[in-house]
């Protein structure tokens, strides 16, 4: 891009490698370009953020108010009816939330453990068939998830775990992409540390558990983020692995909520409130690990 610069701003973003840039004095033309860029960015940012603001505002409106004033960010008369219905009314919202938490916790722990173990074996341990396993992993990653919807149901049903937590959790416990990420990471850390551990007499499992894993914090955090986000937002697998309303997760429960009363403005505050609540955990996660998340995608691309 054009190397427009006001020198006081040059140090603002340390992560960028701006050192090699040419510093041109700011002329009237660059000032104009810069302000136009800001205006454009601000406009796009509003388009991206506004839907979420409307969502939150509408969840505090009455049904009629939501239908009459769909754009206003301030409810005509504030009401918490939405949240009272969600937590106290006939809806099983708390059950859905609990199921989501159960599934997410198990899936996240499982993925961190199993993906890092498999990744370590594929990166470091030499055994016959390793190359074949890795090739199979890549092949499995290439199969689109949606194609597996019905096939997955067939297996879950045959194994007798349809309509159970096991059926919802076990198939998600390993993620081929996660194994791939961990393998790449383990390959990037120097071998010398493990060799030192071996000389000290540590076995393979011990080396992995007390030497390698503690060194792998960044990759493990990446894995936790992906597993958490993936399982919290998962819908299609739960659609095919259970039908018992007691086993509804937030995604499935709120989806059924959305499907009722389609087409009209009916109960939009309720639906939007439910959707807002289910977004909170991923949003919190996002803001805590923001830097990490941004680097996840960037690192992957460079890798």
């Amino acid at each position: 891009m054009t190397a427009t610069t006001v020198s006081t701003q040059a140090t603002e973003d340390k992560s960028s490698s701006g050192a090699a840039q040419t510093r041109a004095p700011a002329g009237p033309r660059t000032v104009l370009t810069t302000s136009m860029t800001y205006a454009l960015l601000a406009l796009i940012a509003i388009i991206y953020i506004f839907p979420f603001l409307i969502q939150i505002a509408t969840s505090f409106k009455t049904d009629n108010d939501a239908a009459a004033n769909p754009v206003s960010l301030i409810p005509a008369n504030w009401t918490t009816a939405t949240y009272q219905t969600l937590f106290g009314g006939g809806l099983a919202f708390p059950t859905w939330a609990m199921n989501s938490v159960i599934v997410t916790v198990f899936v996240t722990i499982g993925r961190v453990l199993f993906c890092s173990m498999a990744g370590y074996a594929l990166a470091r341990l030499r055994f016959r068939g390793r190359g074949l396993l890795f090739a199979a992993l890549i092949a499995v990653m290439a199969v689109p998830a949606v194609v597996l919807l019905i096939p997955k149901f067939l297996v879950v049903n045959t194994l007798g775990i349809y309509d159970s937590y096991a059926g919802m959790i076990v198939p998600l416990l390993v993620d081929a992409a996660g194994v791939f990420i961990m393998k790449n990471f383990f390959e990037s850390i120097p071998m010398s540390v493990e060799e030192a551990a071996h000389i000290d007499g540590a076995g393979i499992f011990r080396t992995f558990w007390s030497v390698v894993l503690p060194m792998s914090r960044p990759a493990l955090i990446t894995l936790v983020i992906l597993a958490f986000q993936g399982s919290w937002n998962e819908l299609s697998h739960f659609v095919v692995s259970a039908q018992d309303p007691d086993l509804y997760t937030l995604t499935k429960g709120v989806a059924t909520l959305a499907a009722g009363g389609q087409g009209q403005a009916q109960q939009f505050p309720l639906k939007l409130g439910a959707a807002a609540l289910m977004t909170i955990p991923v949003a919190v996660m996002f803001f805590i690990f923001q830097r990490q998340i941004m680097n996840t995608a960037e690192g992957a691309e460079k890798g």
Binding site: I54, L250, A258, A265, L272, M278, T279
Partner: peptide, 20 residues
């Protein structure tokens, strides 16, 4: 990062007949 379910609901409201 938000779930597809949540986003779809927001869009159903934004794009409803008398929506934003």
């Amino acid at each position: 990062v938000t779930s597809s379910v949540a986003i779809v609901i927001v869009f159903l409201f934004l794009f409803s007949g008398s929506g934003a």
